[in-house]
Write a protein that binds this DNA or RNA. Sequence first.
DNA 1: TCGCTGTTGTGAACATCGTTTACTATGCTG
DNA 2: CAGCATAGTAAACGATGTTCACAACAGCGA
Lengths: 252, 252
Amino acid sequence: MPAQTTGPDRRTRTRDATSAEIKATARARLVAAGPAALTLRAIARDMGLTAPALYRYFGSHEDLVGAVCADVLEELTAALSTGRDTVPLGDPLGRLGATCRAFRTWALGHREEFQLVFASAGAGPTMPPTMPPTISPGSVDGDRKGDLSFGVVFLGLFAEIWHQQPFAVRDITDLPPDLVAQLQRFSAYVGDVLPLGVLAAFLSGWVRLYGAVTVEVFGHLGFALGDPEPMFELMLADMARELSTPRISSGT
Amino acid sequence: MPAQTTGPDRRTRTRDATSAEIKATARARLVAAGPAALTLRAIARDMGLTAPALYRYFGSHEDLVGAVCADVLEELTAALSTGRDTVPLGDPLGRLGATCRAFRTWALGHREEFQLVFASAGAGPTMPPTMPPTISPGSVDGDRKGDLSFGVVFLGLFAEIWHQQPFAVRDITDLPPDLVAQLQRFSAYVGDVLPLGVLAAFLSGWVRLYGAVTVEVFGHLGFALGDPEPMFELMLADMARELSTPRISSGT
DNA sequence: TCGCTGTTGTGAACATCGTTTACTATGCTG
DNA sequence: CAGCATAGTAAACGATGTTCACAACAGCGA
């Protein structure tokens, strides 16, 4: 055992530890009292420090919040993965359903975190930085330590479904040219490993899932449904049905 | 002319005027610098007042923001109505599409307002208070001065479509019983004037529209699409298609 | 062991925020 | 004219993010 092979400096180790403690304390406040409670001074107070001390670890309040957001997203991705792996590889549609349910369950169980991450316009963490340039078609390894966004989990699932049970997809000539142009951009970004119709189905599904979960967590559905779960299940059934009509002809 | 017939007191008239001016100033700050700029002192400063003066008109900062939200919602409802009335009554599906487009257009042209109203969890204006207990089935009068929410506009459109061109709707026996229970609650709330399947279609459509617009305004789609409009149009086409398959049999 | 150096934390201060309190004008009403 | 409700102000309190000067402390080379 030749000591630790260039293990991180002792200094940087303790530094990372306090940095993590700060984020943990912030997280605790977040779940306890909502995003508004994420104040620099209160966090410092909670861990027996004064506010300026935190500036040794984060450049600003916004930076700290951003770091917490990143942690939350990583955790969400993990929750989605474990939810997905509840169902065996042989049932990709079931895996998609399980992942969608995991998304909703996580959001309802972590409303404050969800609001922090998803209820932001510009400042919020849009996906681009976390979206990997390429996704391998068949392999589902994916999760190399959470440095890739939860969006990839869903895209990977659509790849699984497509490769195992090709579903009916819109003919490319049916789609309006401006949509095709947008999809080609995205396809190139993702590595050109899936037909444009599959990407359209993925995006459409992502929007539906996002909308269903967001509208429920934000309470913008309470006017109609006391318990939106049955409606959510109906949506999942719709999605599964659309993704299970067997493919017949047409080119990629 | 027997004076003004119980016209509002002169005092209350000037009072309402300043109240409106406060909200207008707040609104100006909102569009100029975002929801975070909606501070009591800055608003007062903008109109040559001091902060405590505003407490003569609004009980708290939160009250003021709430009032601005109400104004915004009213304006949104108006935008939806005019968008809807772009298309003649004889084409209810076209009217629905126009209304959905008006929703998206308004949201993109009023991002700050949209964020203020829709990016809130608990505090935000959920629909219940603005949702009328009953909606008249055929008549589309609706807009008695904006005291009813924009949700009614959409529900009214589904009523129009249903009455003019009954579409294929899930048989009630197909739906899981817990969903039926939820829909019955909502149906009673709305006056029991539409079949449960129509209400399910309405809610499903509202969730899709909400998701599509929210995901775009919040920038959570920029990772894939530079211009989400074609995708939005695709969604509208899907919705229209689902609402245009003619009805065949089954009871209400 | 001594002394230097960089890191970590504190205290005070500044500008801003929401809110309350006491006080002063102003204009309507009897 | 007297009285009074209304609209507005100034000052103050606690809280926020942020900066700056300064003190304690650890680690390292001589």
